Amino acid sequence: MNVELITKEDLKQFKTDLLIEIKSLLKPGQGQSKQWLKSYEVRKLLNISPGTLQNLRVNGTLRYTKIGGMLYYKLEDIEKLLEQGSQ
């Protein structure tokens, strides 16, 4: 049986590494490398229902591109929508 001891220093280092990684994911534009997002990704990002996303498309609030039955949204358009909502 192989036993490995974890010290307080190991835990502190793990905490530091984990925080650095989380911060890098939360930085605008860095964690999200995609330029185009699918509908489910937009719904998850905005925390909205499929019907709400459809309303945003229908009333022209959010532009989209349809390719082969799939809807794609520009990340910069979503960021603009979020900025407008926070004002």
Score class of each variant (00 low, 15 high):
K44M: 07
L81N: 05
L11W: 01
Q35E: 13
G60S: 13
M1T: 07
K27W: 00
L26G: 02
P28Q: 07
L45V: 01
E76H: 15
T61Y: 01
T52K: 14
M1A: 06
K44W: 03
V3C: 02
N47R: 14
K15M: 03
L25D: 00
E4A: 04
S24L: 04
L19A: 03
L62F: 11
K74C: 12
V3W: 03
Y40M: 06
I78D: 07
K8D: 06
L5R: 09
I78V: 15
S24W: 03
S49C: 01
L62A: 05
Q54M: 11
Q32A: 10
K12L: 13
K15V: 03
Y64P: 00
R63V: 05
Y73D: 07
G60L: 05
S33C: 03
L5C: 03
D17F: 08
S39P: 04
T61F: 00
I6W: 05
L19E: 14
M70C: 12
Q32I: 15
Q54V: 10
L46E: 10
L62Y: 07
L11A: 13
G69L: 13
Y40H: 12
K27P: 00
S24G: 02
Q30V: 13
D10K: 05
T7C: 03
G69R: 13
G68H: 11
T52E: 12
K27F: 02
I67K: 14
S49V: 04
E9M: 02
G68R: 06
V3R: 08
R63D: 04
G31R: 02
Y40N: 14
K23V: 01
S39V: 10
E9A: 09
